[in-house]
Nucleic acid binder design. Structure first.
Lengths: 333, 333
DNA sequence: TTGTACGCGTTATCAA
DNA sequence: TTGATAACGCGTACAA
């Protein structure tokens, strides 16, 4: 591929002049500008971003580390980040963190090697200290969906416990007393916090949430099917189910229907996330809205600002809100 | 951030030695190797990928240009590419092409400036000639979901016409004679080809496909709803609908249900893509499977190989296959 | 086994 | 308005 030298030689000018026209520099004669532009076109010249990054010490790149492109929830997250990157003319570099601490670390390291000045990181497995260290090393790093007090202003997160609480309260207010949970079997804090919230709401009514009433599996459609089957196998006598996310909920409803249970007449179901899917399930899914796109956009904007030494607000906490649709009804009496 | 010089100075060795241990070079004493490694750790040294790319003339980066991270179909595509990139230890650079020729061009140009040696490109708006030119300039470029005869070996694509044909044939074989289409209003070849296939199958039975029986809208859930409403407004007297994709189909079914039509008892519906969603819709959606993840993986592998001057097969054509689920039944007589 | 020095493609400084 | 030229951080002949 043609370099700036090739262009300079072919145009009979110095590399400095070429560089000036490339960067719309001020001091270059109209004649030369036109000439150089033509030569660039002829030679198919494109400035080498690597060389440029080397000397300018900045590469207009936003790194995103997260786990699963294919999951609608994460896709929405990535979409939000991408929007901000694009509107700021910033390249998007994606690094997959899967779920393990080791891969998450590698994902961040890779981004570090690329010297991308801003990053939004979705990390569940890395320790708080590790993340704090990274945040210190990279001014433009912001955490999404995780709250670490020591670096609170670098975190954009959702109050999961409040979400669990709100879901449970809603069901209670509808008259449900036999409530079961289907949760994620990932060893991260989100499911624990949501469960805490649920438990708290139930306890306030003097209702326990015992082990028997909790089934866990992978947080996707298949997992939802499995967990629902397990619950069924134990003899289902609950009137309502709080499910970890909408993907699982779709699997749950599917199994419920296949086994002759009507939703919501026999069993009510509440999801979490409000992924697009939930509007097209039948019945339409009642769920806790997780404003992930907005959060992702804010995280990306923060990352860009921080990398530019601009200040950001101190608190970026979001609350899930209840979206009432058709999957909840009062229990049969 | 610490450079190789810093490390060399701190360790009291030359940059060459440091470089050797970074790259696991052969000739360096165990003592020095250990020493340097320790210093790198202390200083938090990370090799600068830009500088490295500059000298090695390769940056282990795979560029992906496509339109919509948020769309499950494209998310699956991106997921396939990501898998291959990750398993080959290659960075993923994402460039958004939206739908216009101009943005698609810019997306590719950006990747070009990054000097990523392999790219998988999903371009619908760019002209054949423009893509041929790019393919010539970048040996590791492969096109996905598009077929250009002149560079056939660089294309991974689906036979859309065969898909339309198969869907229509299936409906015909079930006894349907009044078939309508809901299609995408994007000005690209895919909807045209699928429609051609449908028309061809119908004509073989002496059935016309007139304008009245075609409604178009954006290829997503909302678009599906709108198109279905339009069809309804015209007075729906069809027994079966072939819909451009599963997302639209979910919107279509939703509107149908809301208006008292039962699927499939009153109206049969066939989708396209076999996105995960289709398994969780009620009724489960009968659809044409678009093996997009497999195709994306192949495209990524090809791109990597081509960038490495390794040969690839001449033909990469895929056929959609019918997935029978519950949204099609014989017409009422 | 180790170190010196050049070049990768740019930008930016300083003279001219 | 233009042109030499010194960085930027790294890999790698080549020499020691």
């Amino acid at each position: 591929m043609a370099t700036i030298k090739d262009v300079a030689a072919a145009a009979g000018v110095s590399v400095a002049t070429v560089s000036r026209v490339v960067n719309n520099g001020p001091k270059v004669s109209a004649k030369n500008r036109k000439l150089v532009k033509q030569v660039m076109l002829d030679l198919g010249y494109r400035p080498n971003a690597n060389a440029r990054a080397l000397v300018t010490q900045t590469n207009r790149t936003l790194g995103l580390v997260f786990s699963e492109l294919t999951d609608p929830f994460f896709a929405t997250l990535a979409g939000g980040v991408e929007k901000i990157a694009r509107s700021n003319n910033i390249q998007l570099l994606i690094s997959n963190g899967l779920v393990s601490a080791e891969t998450e670390r590698r994902a961040i390291e890779t981004l570090l090697e690329q010297r991308c000045e801003s990053m939004v990181v979705h990390s569940k497995a890395l320790s708080e200290q590790a993340l704090i260290d990274y945040a210190e090393a990279v001014p433009g790093l912001v955490l999404i969906n995780r709250y670490i007090p020591a670096i609170a202003h670098r975190c954009v997160w959702l109050d999961n416990q409040a979400g669990g609480d709100a879901a449970a309260r809603y069901l209670l207010s509808m008259g449900h007393r036999n409530i079961a949970c289907i949760t994620s079997n990932y060893d991260i804090e989100d499911p624990r916090l949501r469960l805490n919230g649920i438990q708290q709401a139930l306890q306030q009514q003097g209702l326990p949430l015992n082990e028997q009433a909790i089934a866990s599996a992978e947080p996707n459609e298949i997992g939802g099917e499995q967990a629902a089957q397990n619950l069924l196998a134990r003899g289902l006598n609950y009137t309502a189910l709080i499910v970890y996310n909408d993907a699982m909920a779709s699997g749950v409803i599917s199994v419920l229907c296949d086994n002759g249970y009507r939703v919501p007449e026999d069993v009510s179901v509440v999801g979490f996330d409000d992924v697009l899917l939930s509007r097209y399930l039948r019945p339409k899914l009642t769920t806790m809205r997780y404003p992930i796109e907005m959060m992702a956009m804010e995280a990306a904007e923060m990352a860009l600002k921080l990398a530019n030494q601009q200040p950001v607000a101190a608190l970026h906490k979001y609350l899930p809100t209840l979206v009432k649709r058709d999957s909840v009804a009062p229990p049969k009496t």
